[in-house]
């Protein structure tokens, strides 16, 4: 089986007092995420994207429908540990997910919980820190690191559990541009070299260009789903959903309106320049 995560008509509402209305945050989500893919989930605040993410490692369980992680039903309590060792989660605030006051101790936290033997933990800590490029900081105090470095430590802490999938729940939202780049390049490498499935929740459109597949959430439902070139070029539809297409696409779309013969699927500066040059040359 090569389905990493499968949601079947997933609905969810947060618990409320008796008699109060229970607004659904997720309203019937059907998704299949393949092993080894890099998926970006976009959406404005309140679109349900974070709630969806929290269902992927049983941090939340459905109030309706089903979530299967590598075949395990997340609603069954005895599956929780199996689900969580398969799907690691990195959160938004880097300060609030680091447990220990030495980097290597923090990375070891997950494997320690799983009861991994001591020598094996040491090997995993070393390899995980290498994988995120933080091996020189093994003995540092986490609170003295930059935001991007802290998030990389958090990622190392997750991959030390040797998961099949990493979910980044708005993990780049609090970082500056260079920190964001650090994190994105790290997960992209993990995806490419180790075949780890990556699910990135964000509202930064520029990050969608890294993905194989882009899913746009809106009011608890999947509003768009497809490869980046297909999704990011739908300027008007994105605007309706509270998002903005990348500037390169906006530029080409504006030029198209002025009668230029360009197509919109240019997500990089180079592609965009190619399009313009071609049109100018013609």
């Amino acid at each position: 089986m090569n389905d990493m995560i499968q949601t079947k008509s997933l609905t969810f509402h947060y618990p409320v007092e008796e008699g109060e209305p229970a607004p659904d945050v997720l309203r019937g989500v059907d998704l299949t995420i393949e092993q080894g893919s890099f998926v970006v989930i976009l959406g404005h605040n309140g679109s349900g994207k974070s709630t969806l993410a929290k269902h992927m490692n049983a941090a939340l369980v459905p109030t309706g429908g089903q979530v299967l992680v590598d075949g395990y039903d997340t609603a069954e309590e005895e599956n929780t540990l199996e689900v969580r060792r398969r799907v690691g989660m990195v959160f938004q605030n880097p300060d609030n997910q680091i447990v220990a006051n030495v980097v290597e101790e923090d990375v070891a936290f997950g494997p320690e919980n799983l009861g991994v033997p001591t020598e094996e933990i040491a090997r995993r800590v070393r390899q995980s820190l290498q994988a995120v490029g933080m091996e020189d900081f093994a003995l540092h105090a986490p609170h003295l690191l930059s935001g991007g470095q802290k998030q990389r430590v958090a990622i190392a802490g997750v991959i030390a559990m040797e998961p099949m999938c990493i979910v980044l729940d708005e993990s780049t939202a609090m970082l500056d541009p260079s920190g964001r780049r650090e994190v994105l390049e790290t997960v992209q490498r993990l995806n490419r070299e180790k075949g780890i499935t990556v699910i990135l929740i964000t509202h930064h459109m520029s990050e969608a260009a890294y993905a194989h597949r882009v899913i746009v959430m809106d009011s608890g439902r999947v509003a768009m789903d497809g490869p980046p070139a297909e999704i990011l070029t739908q300027v008007d539809r994105l605007r309706q959903l509270g998002l903005t297409a990348p500037p390169t696409v906006l530029l080409l779309s504006a030029l198209q309106k002025d009668g230029w013969d360009v197509s919109l699927d240019a997500l990089t500066v180079e592609d965009c320049a190619d399009q313009i040059c071609r049109a100018l040359g013609a």
């Binding site: 989660m89 447990v99 919980n113 802490g157």
Partner: peptide, 9 residues
């Protein structure tokens, strides 16, 4: 939550 997600029990 973060600790639980890292399998702390």
């Amino acid at each position: 939550v973060a600790m639980e997600c890292r399998c702390y029990h």
